[in-house]
Amino acid sequence: MTTLNGSSPATAPTASKRSRRGSLAKSRRRQAWAAWFFLSPTLLFFGIFLVLPLLFAIGLSLSVWGGFDLTRIEFTGLDNFGAILSEGSSFVAPILTNTLLFAFGAVALALVASVAIAHAITRLRFEGFWRTLYFLPIVTTVVAVGNIWKYLYEPGGGLINGLLNAVGISSVQFLSDPDTALPSVVVVQAWASIGSAILILTAGLKAIPHTYYEAGELDGTTAWSAFWHITLPLLRPTLLFVMITQFIGALQSFALIIVMTSGGPANATNVAGFEMYQQAFRFGSWGVASAMALVLFAVIFVITLLQLWFFRRKGEETS
């Protein structure tokens, strides 16, 4: 990991000072020219597919547009935001609440499971083999993940209900009962993201120096309290990173929803990303959809800041 030391732009390479001044200036000019040349494709791309779309999204969110004829855009100020955030709008409840529940549930589940598994895996032989098994869903398309689980949940003929029936429990309508639909999808999201969490946590675990544990052993601490008092606190930065990235991922994820439930039953699994998609590409309400996208982005931003702030503060208290 030593390759990463230069991550701050301030530690620029010390240019050779041996060169004579004249040729140095010339070389500098040439370097600057080359640099802009090398960067131009990247900058052009970000101009077209990052800056322009952002402006476009903001503009659309302030307008009413039924699609297809750009001359028929009508500027309406903050009306779209007013409509989707008003009381009684289904965007706030249940859709945004679902989005948060979905993300919280999936991250909590994945985090607890991955800490436990990552910690256990480091004590086993054939670590790599075990990790690979947990990693399979990461490289699998969401279409496969969603469909596999849809059939596992199937009331007539799916594996999970097959097992329940075998022990005498009658079938559960996992995806068509609104009480179980969201938790069922949360499990799939957690299942699919646990692999990368384990991987990153393993890296974090390996970075904890052995001396800490040896000191603990001398004090006669149990494995459990070593985990609780040594491993977890030292793992905090890694945990924070995993939590934030998984949260961002889960808040915006809706491919799984498209594949598994299309937001149903009765909006029980409708999340903000899916509603945005639906408003634009199905109902033709592009302005409303863009406003939803920006609101969701704001939510993600605020939650990320909150997490950072919370962990920083806790870090200061304990240290």
Binding site: A32, A35, W36, L50, L54, M276, L296
Partner: peptide
């Protein structure tokens, strides 16, 4: 070495903050 390198590097870091769904429409 060129002027604006630090700013451009920050810009690249900043691009990673924007989630892809924002750009779909």
């Amino acid at each position: 070495r060129f002027r604006g390198r630090a700013v451009l590097f920050r810009f690249v870091l900043a691009t990673m903050m924007f989630p892809p769904f924002l750009f779909l429409i």
